[in-house]
């Protein structure tokens, strides 16, 4: 069940990034999983949901979504993006992109 550890690492990264964007709420995190990474997607989704609730990422306003980008013939295992909405002053819908320093 190393999926629990992977889910925990992903949520820790979301937590760190949320601290850099005060007032915002993480709504989605993107994860690339390669065929050879040794990760069971269903198990990971289950662990992610359980931990997200425990870590209060899922609130009355909605749950944190996990978007998996499966890559054949690859051993990639990386977080690719995090999406936020503005909890205090909602902005008009749109996408702005900035590079995170990780």
């Amino acid at each position: 069940m190393h999926e629990m550890g992977i889910a925990s690492s992903v949520l820790e990264a979301v937590h760190q990034e949320t601290h850099r964007t005060p007032g915002c709420r993480a709504t989605k995190v993107g994860l690339r999983i390669g065929e050879y990474a040794g990760v069971d997607q269903e198990s990971l989704r289950f662990c992610f949901e359980v931990l997200a609730k425990e870590m209060n990422f899922s609130t009355a306003r909605g749950s944190l979504e996990l978007e998996i980008d499966y890559r054949p013939a690859s051993d990639d295992l990386a977080i690719s993006f995090i999406e936020f909405d503005d909890a205090e002053e909602p902005e008009p819908s749109g996408t702005s992109v900035r590079k995170a320093e990780v």
């Binding site: 999406e83 936020f84 909405d85 902005e91 996408t95």
Partner: peptide, 14 residues
């Protein structure tokens, strides 16, 4: 909605 692009290995600490 803001999307932050990240390139971070999940097991980067390991």
């Amino acid at each position: 909605m803001n999307r932050v692009t990240i390139e971070k290995k999940v097991l980067s600490e390991n």
